[in-house]
């Protein structure tokens, strides 16, 4: 780099210290080419392929799993009007919606406690929040099966206080599925909320108290709005994977608790009815993208990445 260019750069940086440098025009493209190519081939192309598969029809007289490329949009209507599909789809959003609210109710106070009340234990507590990730999530879900089983501690406590009858249990049930989903995605809720609470200047909260706001009013008017980006990120990071999850429903629920993910897996891998499974996947993605866009528009947060 010539000295003149270096000086030019320095001058520029003085005016806008955070403005990235302008060098060879092709450099950034070259840097990201391999990674973006990978995402194009293994994310974008598959989505297109999924859409094409969703329009396929069986080969006449062919075997199970043999389909030909047609553009049969009736697949969408046929699948959506079938109650074995639209009920699990609806159930998925109900379960994941409840689980997201529960995770918020548990995760927000937890993040608040870590951010403001943990003192020198803060880093240790943060490690404890992500510690569950270090154990295979399928084994943790199996552990819930043991914990919620009729011989387990939860049912024993619930029976002793009379919340659950002598013959009734918790596993398998919708409650167990929702508890499992809430559990599996709780760290995804807690960490972003913590990240935005950590940036809140405690003096702002003190100031609200000095101005005679009651603690709750101070929270509602100062802390909560400032933590909103974390809440938005946390709810999305919980809701999106929860809506597509099928491990919890498969391991903790009854057949009557199946979610759309179970249907997609079963139709794709066991029935080999690829077009129907592709329709379901595509509808799930479309529903989630719509909900996410509406939600982001509502709460008005632009930069999430």
């Amino acid at each position: 780099m010539s000295i003149a260019a270096a000086i030019g750069d320095t001058l520029q940086e003085e005016h806008q210290p955070n403005e990235p440098k302008r060098k060879g025009k092709w450099v950034p493209y070259l840097l990201m080419l391999p990674g973006m190519l990978w995402l194009a081939i293994f994310f974008v192309v598959p989505i297109v392929s999924l859409f094409l598969t969703s329009l396929q029809t069986p080969v006449p007289g062919g075997q199970v799993g043999e389909f030909q490329q047609t553009f049969n949009f009736a697949n969408y209507w046929d699948t959506l009007s079938d109650s074995t599909y639209y009920i699990p789809l609806f159930r998925s959003f109900v379960y994941s919606g409840i689980a997201t609210l529960l995770a918020l109710a548990i995760g927000y106070p937890l993040a608040y406690a870590i951010a403001f009340k943990s003192g020198k234990f803060r880093n240790l507590l943060l490690v404890l929040v992500i510690a569950p990730f270090f154990v295979s999530f399928i084994l943790r879900t199996i552990a819930w099966r043991q914990i919620l089983a009729d011989e387990g501690p939860v049912v024993a406590v619930l029976r002793s206080v009379g919340l659950v009858g002598e013959t009734a249990g918790v596993y398998p049930s919708a409650v167990a599925v929702i508890a499992g989903i809430t559990y599996n995605f709780l760290p995804f809720m807690t960490l972003p909320i913590y990240a935005s609470l950590e940036r809140v200047d405690p003096r702002l909260i003190e100031a609200s108290g000095d101005l005679y706001a009651k603690p709750f009013t101070g929270f509602r008017k100062v802390t909560w709005p400032l933590s909103m980006p974390g809440v938005v990120a946390g709810t999305l990071l919980t809701f999106i994977p929860a809506a597509g999850d099928y491990v919890n429903a498969a391991l903790l629920g009854r057949p009557s608790n199946t979610m759309i993910g179970n249907r997609i897996e079963y139709t794709f891998l066991s029935v080999n009815d690829y077009p129907t499974a592709a329709v379901l996947s595509f509808i799930l993605m479309a529903c989630i993208l719509t909900m996410v866009l509406v939600y982001i528009r509502r709460v008005g947060t632009e930069d999430l990445v």
Binding site: F42, P46, L52, T53, Y274, A277, L289
Partner: peptide, 27 residues
Amino acid sequence: TTNLLIFLPMATPEVVLGSSLLALFLN
């Protein structure tokens, strides 16, 4: 556009990622 393409796989449920790749590999 790059930012969007980075964000989208994280905003897509794993079933959709998995099944779309399977659709590609099958096709």
